[in-house]
Amino acid sequence: MSPELLLVFVPACFALNMAPGPNNLLSVSNASRFGFAAACTAGAGRLAAFVGMIAIAACGLAAVLQASALAFTVIKTVGALYLFYLAIQLWRAPAGPAPDGALAAGIRSASLWRLARQEFMVAAGNPKAILIFTAFLPQFVNPAEAAAPQFALLGALFLVLEWVAIAAYAYMGSHLGKWFAVPARRRLFNRICAGLLGAAGGGLLLSRKAADAA
């Protein structure tokens, strides 16, 4: 793969990583409640889902989603319902002041697996992510060279840039958490995030395959 192609891929890929979406919103929310480190660590769940999606795209199995309206609809519906569930949980979350010190560390430790699982489920429940990998990554694969090593390199770069995006959104969330330390502000912030997650779920339900929309 030529360096010129990589110079095109990296900024285009990073734009996708930084685009606002359910997972990035989840990072903001997690960081505001549990801290920067917890949100970044929980992002490993999202990366695990993306590793699987990149492997699926590399194997060409994502064509199943493009060809099967039923498979696309089932995954899309499950993902949307999970977003609605998270939105309800966040709407009802306690609005007390953010914990700190040893107590906060204990809460982050106890909740880390749950947060990572949420990140995984939100990413895995969005079939558009697989379609993005299927449509985006192959544009940078040179057909004259072996495809597998190129997919591995592009996938690794995508994951690194995604981790940077996770850290960026978590950083914003951690500072928002300090700003909304007042219970009334925290409640408002939680409900704004809940509304956005619910809207993302609604958008996911209303989305259609590009082929159907064409």
Rank of each mutant, 00 (worst) to 15 (best):
S2H: 12
P3Q: 10
L5P: 01
F9S: 03
A12I: 06
A12P: 01
A12Q: 13
C13W: 04
N17A: 15
P20D: 09
P22W: 11
N23F: 08
F34I: 09
F36C: 06
F36L: 15
A38N: 05
A39K: 07
A42Y: 06
A42G: 08
G43H: 07
G45K: 08
R46C: 12
A48S: 12
A49Y: 02
M53A: 06
M53C: 03
I54K: 02
A57S: 05
C59Q: 12
C59L: 14
A69S: 11
A69E: 09
L70R: 11
L70F: 12
F72K: 00
T73F: 10
V74W: 09
I75R: 02
I75G: 03
K76Q: 12
T77I: 13
A80H: 07
Y82F: 14
Y82N: 05
Y82L: 04
A87C: 06
P94L: 11
G96I: 11
P97R: 14
G101D: 00
G101C: 05
A105T: 10
G106L: 09
S109V: 10
A110Y: 06
A110F: 08
L112Y: 07
L115H: 07
M121D: 00
A123F: 03
A123G: 01
A124R: 06
N126F: 07
N126I: 04
P127M: 02
P127K: 00
F133A: 00
A135C: 06
A135G: 01
F136A: 05
P138C: 04
Q139I: 01
F140V: 03
A148P: 04
Q150M: 05
F151N: 00
A152K: 04
A156V: 13
L157I: 15
E162Y: 11
W163V: 11
I166V: 15
H175L: 15
G177F: 09
R185I: 09
L188H: 11
L188T: 14
N190P: 02
R191D: 04
I192T: 14
A194V: 09
G195W: 10
G198Y: 11
G201I: 12
G201S: 08
G203L: 15
L204I: 08
L204W: 06
R208P: 00
A210W: 06
